[in-house]
């Protein structure tokens, strides 16, 4: 294991985040605050509570998930796409660095940034509504697992993309809609029957539900199912990454 190399990539990526601190930290904090103003204060005042949890607090896990998914994907995809775009990827390909080490460096840094961001959003949320963690260890587990999984998804997108617009397409057209539909701001139990069944095909439902359970003990789907699904997404991402490196897909000509 080339630990120095993992560290070098990781440090390099973290340094990039420090250079773009506005983009990685400030803007999500501002948008989270806006969500609280809109959903928490304006709409929340008309919704009493969901499953015994005040609406403002109810949306916190969903909000964290929303940013976590978006930022993990955009961070990781940009991190690997940029060297491909500029050509500096030659350095990594010609260095004694294994695929696993490359992924650990890039996805690891992206996941770290996402987790930091998630914590910052939680702290921001704490300014608006009372927070409550029923299962803090599980909360941390869901946070970290999701950050890792979607950093891997971002890594895959960054390798698949052959233009900057493609980097945006997946987050914009797939992830954001799925997050909104996936019960970030409501319980899918509030949906009428056919929609509710349909929602169960949305993977984000399982992530948000499990995460919310770790806060308030309420869930749309069984927490074991949530955990199994989270693990499944992680396994799928790992398999795709493994395939990419095995075939040299889009990395080597």
């Amino acid at each position: 294991m080339n630990l120095e190399a993992i560290g070098a990539i990781y440090k390099y990526e973290m340094a990039r985040a420090r250079r773009t601190v506005t983009q990685t930290i400030v803007s999500p904090v501002i948008s989270t605050s806006l969500y609280f103003v809109v959903f928490g204060a304006a709409i929340g005042s008309r919704i009493q509570s969901v499953g015994g949890v005040e609406y403002g607090s109810f949306i916190v896990p969903g909000l964290v998930m929303l940013s976590l998914l978006g930022q993990s994907i955009s961070n990781a995809s940009f991190g690997i796409y940029f060297p491909r775009f500029t050509g500096t990827i030659y350095e990594i390909l010609s260095a004694p660095v294994s695929p696993v080490e490359i992924v650990l460096g890039y996805a690891g840094a992206a996941a770290t940034k996402s987790v930091i961001l998630g914590v910052i959003i939680l702290l921001t949320a704490g300014l608006f509504v009372p927070l409550h963690f029923l299962h803090p260890v599980w909360m941390a587990a869901f946070l970290v697992l999701t950050a890792i999984t979607f950093s891997l998804v971002g890594f895959i997108i960054g390798i698949w993309a052959d233009g900057f617009e493609k980097l945006q397409i997946v987050p914009l057209l797939i992830v954001t809609p799925l997050t909104f539909l996936g019960g970030s701001f409501y319980s899918i139990n509030m949906l009428p029957r056919p929609w509710r069944t349909l929602a169960l095909f949305d993977p984000v439902v399982y992530l948000v539900s499990g995460f919310r359970w770790s806060f308030y003990g309420i869930a749309d789907v069984n927490v074991a199912v949530s955990l199994a699904m989270t693990a499944l997404f992680l396994a799928i991402s790992l398999a795709v990454v493994w395939w990419i490196f095995r075939t040299g897909y889009r990395l080597k000509t």
Partner: peptide
């Protein structure tokens, strides 16, 4: 990488080689 400093980019390469 246009945005990096000379020192950092050279250190980075050395790191890649373990």
């Amino acid at each position: 990488d246009a945005f990096e400093s000379v020192w950092n980019t050279v250190s980075f390469t050395r790191g890649l080689f373990g």
